[in-house]
Computed example of a mutant assay.
Amino acid sequence: MTPPKADVAGQAACAANASAVLSYAKPAVIKKRTDFLRAAKAKRVPCPAFLVQACPRGDEATFRVGFTCSKKVGNAVIRNRAKRRLREIARMVMARHGRVGWDYVLVGRPDATVSRDFSAMCDDLERALKKLHGPAR
């Protein structure tokens, strides 16, 4: 098995779009199973490489993000690679498009999460968040 080729141009394009953000702060991470289950019952937006689940919560301090990849995605190495990619696009995109007081869960898809172009994944997440929240206020 050969490792996937690095998409340097795509990462640069995604980073250029995120240049408006002064710092890439890590979003708060969802860790409790109940929070994942609550997000699973709420709004969903499918993307080619992942699924976005989102639900509002009462806490208005920040937004939280959770990541999950089942064994259908692949072995442990592939699942971890997929989750690293999901964490990175969340770090780059959520700072600008995430809403305070919401929980988001990014679910990896077999083959697609690891092999899809990185800049395309960033664009997919932006589109999904715009679809979830409607037009900007």
Rank of each mutant, 00 (worst) to 15 (best):
M1T: 14
T2H: 15
D7S: 09
V8C: 11
C14K: 00
A18P: 02
S19V: 14
A20Y: 13
Y24A: 15
Y24I: 12
K26S: 14
A28Q: 03
V29Q: 04
V29C: 02
T34C: 09
F36K: 02
A39P: 01
A40M: 04
A49G: 10
F50N: 00
L51Q: 06
A54N: 01
C55P: 06
G58K: 12
G58M: 12
R64W: 05
V65F: 01
V65M: 02
F67P: 00
F67A: 03
F67E: 00
K71P: 07
K71V: 04
K72H: 08
G74A: 05
G74K: 01
G74R: 01
N75S: 11
I78G: 04
R81I: 08
L86T: 03
L86C: 04
E88A: 14
I89C: 06
I89L: 09
I89N: 07
R91T: 10
R91P: 05
V93Q: 02
M94I: 03
M94N: 02
R96S: 14
R99P: 05
W102Y: 12
Y104A: 02
V105Q: 04
V107S: 05
G108N: 06
R109E: 04
D111R: 13
V114D: 06
R116V: 09
S119Y: 15
C122N: 02
E126C: 11
K130E: 00
L132V: 05
P135T: 08
A136Q: 07
R137L: 15
